[in-house]
Design a protein around this nucleic acid. Structure first.
Length: 557
RNA sequence: CUGCCCGUAGCUCAACUGGAUAGAGCACCAGCCUUCUAAGCUGGGGGUUACAGGUUCGAUUCCUGUCGGGCAGGCCA
C-alpha cells in the first residue's frame, strides 16, 4: 500500500521519462501540484521553471520540449503550457474511474501504508498525576495522542501508548493530607483545613470509601483501605488507586487506551536516576556551585544551566525526566513523541540537552514534542470555569456527559494543537450543519440509507462499468477521494490530526453536493451501479478517516 | 527584561510545506422537500494574509525588524 496520491505517482513516471531526455544531467525535484484553479487542469508541474536557471533556457521553451518528449498515455486528455512555464495536465475521466475499484478492494486498508514497517514509536500523553479527575486539557491530549497513534499505526509503525505519572511527590502528599483531613471530618473552609489542599467533592468521596475499608482496582494497581485515619501511608495509596481508577473511567468514556503506565518512582527504585546522574558526571558536563550539582545544559542550546541535585541532596524533577527518556531510547523506540500543554515548553531544551550530555547516542531532536494550548468551555454564552466534582476546573467527563464522546473528540481535534480552542457545548449539541461532526456522520448515514433502500449485494458492483460517472460532482468527489492517502500521511508527518478533520468535512461536502444533484437509484442499471460504487468508495473513506480520529460512523441518524 | 508559539473575511478556521485569481463553515441576503434522511443543497456580497523591509521568476508560507496576543523563565512540579 502507498501513502501517496495514486495518480500523481503515475504522472510522475511519465514526466520523469521526458525529463531524462530533455535534461539528463540537471537533476530536478519533481513536484506535481494540484492547481487551485480547475481551469489549470488536474495537475501541474513546475519542472520547466526549475530547470530554467541551471540550463539557462526560457522556461516556456523547456516546457514545450518536455511536452514533446512526454510518452503517450490513456490517463492524459490534454497537456498545455501556462503562465511562466507551468505544464498543466488534464486527465481523462477514465483515469479517475480507476480509483473506485482500488478503494473498494482495499476497504479498511484504504489509506494505510507500510512506510513505517519495522519502526517502533512511543507516544506519551495525558500523563496526569493522580490528584484529581482529568480536565479538558487532558482531553485535548487524549484526543491528540490517540489520533496520532492511530495515524502512525496506519503508516505501518509499531506504536506504544504510554502514560507517565508520579505517585510519590509533593502533590501526592497534599492529596493524602486532603483526604485525611476530610476523613477526620474537616471540610474546606474550616479553620483546620490545610492551606494547600484539594477542594473538590471527590476528596470527600475518597475519604468515605477509605473509612469504609473499600477495595479499589485501576488498570495498573489495586489497593484495600485500612480505614485508619492516622495511617497516612494507607490513605495515600488508597487515594492514588482511587484516582487512577477515576481516570481510567474518564479515559474509557473517551475510548482511549494505554499500553503501559510508567511510574516516576520506578526510576528511583530501578537505579536509573542514579545511573543517569553518573553518566552526566562522567561526561564532565556537571559542576558544583552553591552546594548544588549543576548540568551545563547551555552547551546544548539551553538558555541557562540547570540544577540536578539540590543543596538538600534531593533531585529536581529534571534528572528523572532525562532518565525516563534514556529508558525510552533503550527500550528500542527510535522515535518518541510527547504530547503536553504549552506550559511545559520550557522542559524541551532541558531534556534534549540532558540526553545529549549523557552521550547515549540519542539523536539531537529526541524526543519530539507536540504542545497544545488551553481549552476553554462555553455554555449558554458564558464561560464555564468550575465543576462541583473537581472544584476549580471543568472535567473531561463533564464535557462528554454534556455532549458525546464523538463530539468532544472531533471538536478537540478540529484545530491545530497550538491554537487556543473554545469548546462550545451548545454547538456540540446542535443537530444541524453548524455542527461539523454531524455533517460528516450524516454523509455516512445517507450513504448507508441508499444501500439499504437499494437492497443489493455490494459484491455485484465489483465489475461495474464506471464510464457513466462524468458529472462534475462525480469527478470532484473522485478527485477528493484520491487525496485521502496523502492526507493521512501528512497528518501523521505533521502531528496534525486537524488536517484529517478538515479533509473529512470537505469530503462530506463534496458528497452532500453530489447527493443533492443526482439520484443514485435510477432506472438505468449501468448508471445506478456506477454511482453506487462511487458512494461505496466514499463510505469507505469516511469510515476509515473517522476511525483514525476515534469517532464513530453511525449507519442511521 | 529574556526565550518559545501565534496574528489570514465581522466570527471560527483552511491553504497540498515557495506556485497561478488566498478557500470553507457560521452570521447576513435570496432560493430548493409528493422523489435514496432538508441533521442537506444552490446562488450572493464580503481580504493591503497585523505592519515595514529583504531573499527570487513567484512569498500567507523562508529571513530581519516593529506592533499585538498567549505561554514559560527562580535549588519549581
Amino acid at each position: 500500500m502507498s501513502n501517496t496520491h495514486p495518480l500523481k505517482e503515475q504522472l510522475a513516471l511519465l514526466i520523469g521519462t521526458a525529463l531524462d531526455i530533455v535534461s539528463p544531467d540537471a537533476p530536478v525535484s519533481l513536484e506535481i501540484e494540484r492547481p487551485k484553479n480547475p481551469a489549470h487542469g488536474d495537475f501541474s508541474s513546475n519542472a520547466a521553471m526549475q530547470l530554467a536557471r541551471p540550463l539557462k533556457k526560457n522556461p516556456r521553451e523547456l516546457a514545450q520540449r518536455i511536452l514533446t518528449e512526454l510518452p503517450a498515455s490513456p490517463l492524459i486528455a490534454k497537456a498545455d503550457i501556462a503562465g511562466a512555464g507551468f505544464i498543466n495536465f488534464h486527465l481523462t475521466p477514465a483515469a479517475w474511474h480507476g480509483l473506485v475499484p482500488q478503494i473498494r478492494t482495499a476497504g479498511a486498508q484504504f489509506g494505510r501504508a507500510d512506510a513505517g514497517r519495522g519502526h517502533k514509536m512511543l507516544v506519551e500523553f495525558v500523563s496526569a498525576n493522580p490528584t484529581g479527575p482529568l480536565h479538558v486539557g487532558h482531553g485535548r491530549q487524549a484526543a491528540l495522542g490517540d489520533a496520532i497513534c492511530n495515524l502512525y499505526a496506519a503508516q505501518g509503525w509499531e506504536v506504544f501508548r504510554e502514560f507517565y505519572y508520579n505517585d510519590a511527590g509533593v502533590q501526592i502528599a497534599t492529596l493524602a493530607a486532603s483526604v485525611q483531613a476530610r476523613a477526620k471530618g474537616v471540610k474546606p473552609g474550616d479553620a483546620d483545613w490545610p492551606d494547600a489542599a484539594y477542594n473538590g467533592d471527590y476528596i470527600a468521596d475518597i475519604a468515605a470509601d477509605f473509612l469504609a475499608r473499600q477495595s479499589v482496582k485501576s488498570d495498573d494497581r489495586e489497593f484495600t483501605a485500612s480505614g485508619d485515619v492516622d495511617d497516612i501511608d494507607s490513605i495515600r495509596q488508597f487515594a492514588v488507586a482511587y484516582l487512577r481508577h477515576e481516570q481510567d473511567l474518564d479515559l474509557k468514556a473517551f475510548a482511549v487506551r494505554f499500553d503501559h503506565y510508567y511510574l516516576e518512582s520506578s526510576l528511583y527504585t530501578s537505579g536509573r536516576v542514579e545511573a543517569t546522574l553518573q553518566k552526566l558526571v562522567n561526561a564532565g558536563k556537571t559542576y558544583q556551585q552553591d552546594g548544588a550539582l549543576w548540568l551545563r545544559t547551555t552547551d546544548y542550546g539551553d538558555d541557562k544551566d540547570r540544577v540536578m541535585k539540590k543543596s538538600d541532596g534531593t533531585y529536581t524533577y529534571f534528572v528523572p525526566d532525562v532518565a525516563y527518556h534514556i529508558a525510552k531510547w533503550e527500550r528500542g523506540y527510535e522515535r518518541a513523541i510527547n504530547i503536553q500543554g504549552t506550559d511545559h515548553h520550557g522542559t524541551i531544551a532541558r531534556v534534549r540537552a540532558g540526553l545529549q550530555a549523557a552521550g547515549a547516542g540519542i539523536p539531537e531532536g529526541y524526543p519530539d514534542y507536540l504542545l497544545h494550548t488551553m481549552v476553554r468551555v462555553m455554555r449558554g454564552g458564558e464561560e464555564v470555569k468550575i465543576s462541583k466534582r473537581a472544584g476549580s476546573y471543568v472535567t473531561l467527563r463533564d464535557l462528554i456527559e454534556w455532549t458525546s464522546k464523538d463530539a468532544v473528540r472531533f471538536f478537540l481535534l478540529s484545530r491545530k494543537a497550538d491554537t487556543e480552542y473554545i469548546f462550545d457545548v451548545d454547538l456540540a449539541l446542535a443537530k444541524n450543519n453548524d455542527n461539523p461532526v454531524y455533517y460528516v456522520q450524516y454523509a455516512h448515514a445517507r450513504i448507508c440509507r441508499v444501500f439499504e433502500e437499494w437492497g443489493g449485494m455490494t459484491d455485484t458492483l465489483d465489475d461495474a462499468d464506471l464510464a457513466p460517472l462524468t458529472a462534475p460532482h462525480e469527478l470532484a468527489l473522485m478527485q477528493r477521494l484520491a487525496e485521502y492517502p496523502e492526507t493521512v500521511a501528512g497528518a501523521a508527518r505533521d502531528l496534525a490530526p486537524h488536517l484529517l478533520v478538515h479533509y473529512l468535512q470537505v469530503l462530506a461536502g463534496d458528497f452532500h453536493a453530489w447527493y443533492n444533484a443526482e439520484k443514485f437509484l435510477v432506472e438505468d442499471v449501468a448508471t445506478r451501479h456506477a454511482r453506487l460504487a462511487l458512494a461505496d468508495a466514499t463510505r469507505i473513506a469516511i469510515v476509515n478517516g473517522l476511525a483514525l480520529l476515534g469517532v464513530s460512523a453511525p449507519e442511521k441518524m
